[in-house]
């Protein structure tokens, strides 16, 4: 392309960042509902839990496809290095999502094997969340790279750190899921969501602290970024606000508020995500390639950017409408099942 008018790489990094975050948030709460599903006491509660996400899970999962394709489009080098490096957690995630995705219909239609599909839904959600956490951990740790290829072995991805982030994300999604259920249900089921939410909250708390302490030691650049002067002053709001959000979440889970637990959980996710972005920016293949080095051609980035700018607002609009159609508490008596 001709003259260099606009630096598209950071714009794409922002789009990708927002897209992946929307995925984490949206599929996060419905994977979380899937994880909590395993603790539901009876079929009635399971029906309600599943109904609360049945109309929206497909749209939520679409952000995963968009995230993957946006990474390929904007930073193909990163896609080509990272995906082979996370081969097994990626396949685990995809197959877990297969089980979980078909369970919605299959559980309803195939009453002889309902227990099997109940398990498929719960374990599919849990393993999908775990695998995504492993991918995240591996990403933070960085990969063995030679030239334009991943040069390690396919099992390198499983490390103590990535297993920790795997478990951490399960707790995180469970917390989001609990927030969603508190919003969408009432009575004993809502009480259960609060109780499980409190357990998930402790898991999240431990995980956030552990990952925050561990990450700066993974790579000197990260420690440098957070603890050097004046960064430490500029960045101090992140941990402080995280503590505020955590306090708010704990109080919300313990009083009668119906929307605050979900919102506070979102705030916790925003802050943790921001923390990771601060640690890693502008690396897209951590410690090896920046967003500029891994960028696709300007023509590629520009062509898809037009589509994103025009279509994404429309998508957000009708997605919001589809959520609005199914607003309010989910009911049991006349339902999907």
């Amino acid at each position: 392309m001709s003259a260099h008018v606009l630096d598209l790489a950071p714009i794409w990094a922002a789009i990708l960042g927002v897209g992946v975050f929307l995925y984490v948030l949206l599929d996060g709460f419905d994977l979380g509902v899937g994880i909590l599903y395993g603790f539901a006491p009876d079929r009635q509660s399971r029906n309600l839990m599943m109904n609360s996400i049945a109309p929206v899970w497909d749209g939520n999962e679409t952000w995963l496809v968009l995230g993957g394709v946006a990474l390929l489009a904007a930073f193909p080098l990163a896609f080509a290095i990272i995906l082979p490096a996370v081969y097994f957690p990626m396949i685990l995630m995809l197959l877990a999502l297969v089980f979980r995705g078909v369970s919605f219909e299959f559980r309803f239609r195939d009453s002889e094997h309902r227990t099997f599909w109940d398990h498929a839904f719960c374990w599919g959600s849990a393993l999908g969340a775990f695998a995504q956490g492993v991918v995240l951990g591996a990403f933070i740790q960085g990969f063995a790279v030679e030239g334009r290829h991943f040069a390690g072995r396919s099992f390198d991805v499983f490390t103590p750190f990535s297993l920790l982030t795997g478990v951490a994300l399960m707790f995180g999604y469970a917390l989001l899921g609990a927030g969603w259920l508190i919003l969408k249900t009432e009575g004993p089921l809502q009480d259960m969501a609060r109780r499980l939410g409190r357990i998930a909250f402790f898991g999240v708390l431990v995980a956030v602290v552990a990952v925050s302490l561990w990450t700066p030691f993974l790579h000197p650049a990260i420690g440098e970024r957070w603890f050097s002067w004046p960064n430490i002053a500029w960045l101090s709001p992140v941990p402080i606000l995280t503590a505020v959000a955590a306090t708010a979440e704990w109080r919300a889970l313990n009083d009668r508020s119906e929307i605050a637990p979900f919102l506070s959980a979102i705030a916790l996710f925003v802050l943790s995500y921001l923390g990771l972005a601060i640690s890693l920016f502008p690396m897209i293949v951590p410690y090896k390639y920046t967003i500029w080095q891994a960028a696709s051609s300007e023509a590629t980035q520009a062509f898809l950017l037009v589509g994103v700018l025009v279509l994404l607002p429309v998508i957000l609009l009708y997605t919001a409408w589809s959520y609005w159609v199914f607003r309010g508490k989910v009911q049991a008596n006349i339902g999907y099942h």
Binding site: D58, G59, T62, V69, L311, Y318, W321, S322
Partner: peptide, 11 residues
Amino acid sequence: GLTAFFLEAAF
């Protein structure tokens, strides 16, 4: 994704 998947999923 932008023209098809979101449209299908939401509706």
